[in-house]
């Protein structure tokens, strides 16, 4: 199918700003779903609050637009009660790692079969350009007029440490790679995290003089490099892209099925 067949077309054009990377992530996610051949009725997209969260309203799946930071907690309830469904949770910086940080690490720890997409634009867009826990030091934001002093989380390292069994990173520039990583993440049995660096030309770009959307997206080509590449070896300051973690560990819902079996055996005994 065309990716336009997976969206609720009556809401287009969407509300994101011109050049916003979130639209590219939506675009790539739909390609991934299409290439995997998933049925619309089998997918639940759960989102929180913010620019990123509006993604749920646009996709023609079962969609749950929830509270700021709580998307993974809602998704956990959906998944554990209906494990056969495919859960995809797109989140912004705040949803995933500020207000929602606790849910993020615990979902990873449980290894519940949910695909978490961290749409990292290093800024809070919906509220007008405040810094986020992914901004990092030295950037300009409306709440950092003298530049940020807050260090940022490394999403990949955090997810790895918390126990996510699939962890990957890409950017909106690397669309084919993103589609591939999303396909692998969705197919992975367990908690999968895909961090996608995405441009916010309106707030981050303007404030930090990174130019228009096209310039911002092209920058990802120069500041990142594939894991294992010569470029990364020569310049470790580049942000690595690719798959960082892909391991097997008991998935939470499957483990709970065993709890049910044990409980029934004890009751019968």
């Amino acid at each position: 199918m065309a990716i336009q067949d997976y969206i609720r077309q009556r809401f287009f054009p969407h509300l994101w700003c011109p050049g916003c990377g979130h639209g590219i992530i939506l675009n790539n996610l739909l390609h991934a779903v299409d290439e995997l051949g998933l049925a619309k009725n089998d997918i639940v997209v759960t989102s929180g609050i913010g620019c990123s969260a509006r993604i749920s309203g646009y996709v023609d799946f079962h969609t749950l637009h929830t509270l700021h930071g709580r998307a993974l907690a809602f998704a956990t309830g959906v998944k554990l009660s209906r494990p056969e469904l495919t859960l995809i949770v797109p989140m912004g910086d705040g949803d995933a790692l500020a207000i929602g940080g606790n849910h993020f690490i615990h979902a990873a720890r449980r290894n519940i079969d949910i695909t978490a997409i961290v749409m990292n634009n290093r800024i809070y867009g919906m509220t007008g350009g405040q810094f986020s826990p992914l901004s990092g030091p030295g950037i300009l934001a409306t709440t950092a007029p003298y530049r940020t002093i807050d260090p940022n989380f490394d999403v990949v390292e955090l997810a790895r440490a918390a126990g996510a069994t699939f962890v990957a990173r890409s950017t909106t520039y690397h669309a084919l790679e993103t589609i591939d990583l999303l396909k692998r993440a969705i197919s992975h049995k367990g908690f999968a995290v895909v961090e996608i660096l995405t441009q916010c030309p309106t707030y981050y770009g303007r404030k930090n003089k990174e130019g228009e959307a096209a310039e911002m997206i092209e920058r990802y080509k120069h500041i990142t490099a594939k894991i294992g590449s010569k470029a990364l070896e020569e310049n470790p300051a580049l942000i690595p892209r690719g798959v960082f973690v892909e391991v097997g560990r008991p998935e939470y819902c499957e483990a709970y099925e065993e709890v049910i079996v044990r409980a029934r055996q004890e009751v019968a005994a």
Binding site: A73, T76, G77, N102, H106
Partner: peptide, 18 residues
């Protein structure tokens, strides 16, 4: 769950599946 917030959210999710 990891806290009461998550507990409340999880039951809402599970109610939606019936």
């Amino acid at each position: 769950m990891e806290d009461e917030i998550a507990s409340m959210c999880a039951i809402i999710g599970a109610s939606l599946t019936g």
